[in-house]
């Protein structure tokens, strides 16, 4: 197992966010985490990253605790929720991707040509050509910026990729393209992917496994089984619009939009 959570409980500002969560994430598997707002999805990722300390329970990432000695942060790529940033922030696309190399470079060391080449390879992987590397990050469209941040998360040592609502704010075409890209990268680079989203239909079509979370784990398994089960109704209420749509075969032909 790449990531294991045993009886993890988290309380933030007096609110119980996660309760006795038990989860295993296997190597090379693309897992989608779904759940309503406030379900603890982002907190779960932060627990795996070691940014939030559980009240109780045990977390291991690559066999080590996520924070402190022996942590394996340098093999984890993370794409946080899309945030507004200063569009005039003075970094080029390549500079932004280079930031993902910081854990590989290490403290008190300076980036070398090898690191710059690795950053360029990451840009190639997400389909951004060489010319764009020298443009200011703020000059890019929202979809292109997400690709740059995905490239930043793909440093050469990355084995685990954590994505937090990566397609929020993108149009439908850009969303589909993003998911397809992540799926292809996961297979090509043999990555373990954990993706948090509200976009049930699309993630069901791309993920190997789904986790239904609402403070507790309601279900964990293959998308087809999860989408057909009544657990979604319990999670999101019954205000679900369902329609048949091609391309969601792993969800037994059902696509669920919230």
């Amino acid at each position: 197992m790449i990531v294991t959570l045993e009886n993890v409980t988290v309380t933030l500002s007096g609110c119980r966010v996660l309760e006795e969560v038990n989860l295993d994430f296997r190597e090379g598997i693309f897992t989608g985490i779904i759940g309503p707002n406030g379900a603890g999805k982002t907190t779960l990722l932060k627990v795996i990253l070691g940014l939030v300390k559980p009240d109780c329970g045990k977390v291991t990432v690559f066999g080590a605790p996520p924070a402190g000695r022996g942590n394996k942060r340098h093999v984890i790529g993370y794409l946080p929720q899309r945030q507004q940033f200063d569009r005039r922030f003075p970094v080029s696309v390549l500079d932004a991707v280079m930031m993902g190399q910081v854990p590989c470079i290490g403290p008190l060391r300076f980036p070398t040509k090898w690191h710059r080449e690795a950053a360029r390879r990451s840009l190639d992987l997400v389909g951004l050509d060489g010319e764009i590397a020298h443009r200011q990050i703020g000059e890019l469209s929202g979809g292109q910026q997400q690709l740059v941040f995905l490239a930043r998360a793909l440093c050469p040592h990355t084995r685990l990729l954590l994505l937090d609502e990566p397609t929020a704010g993108l149009d439908l075409v850009a969303q589909q393209r993003f998911y397809t890209l992540v799926r292809n990268l996961q297979q090509e680079l043999k990555l373990t992917v954990i993706l948090v989203t509200h976009d049930l239909g699309t993630v069901a079509a791309h993920a190997d496994e789904l986790v239904c979370l609402n403070r507790r784990v309601y279900a964990h398994g293959e998308p087809g089984r999860i989408m057909a089960s009544p657990v979604l109704g319990r999670l999101f209420g019954n205000n679900l619009l369902t329609r048949k749509e091609e391309g969601a075969s792993t969800a037994n032909g059902r696509m669920v939009c919230v």
Partner: peptide, 20 residues
């Protein structure tokens, strides 16, 4: 600590996650 400080200025959350 230039590269770490620049990372923090740009995206403090991603910098934290990267172990900075």
């Amino acid at each position: 600590f230039f590269k770490e400080l620049l990372f923090i200025c740009f995206d403090a959350e991603a910098a934290s996650a990267a172990g900075v």
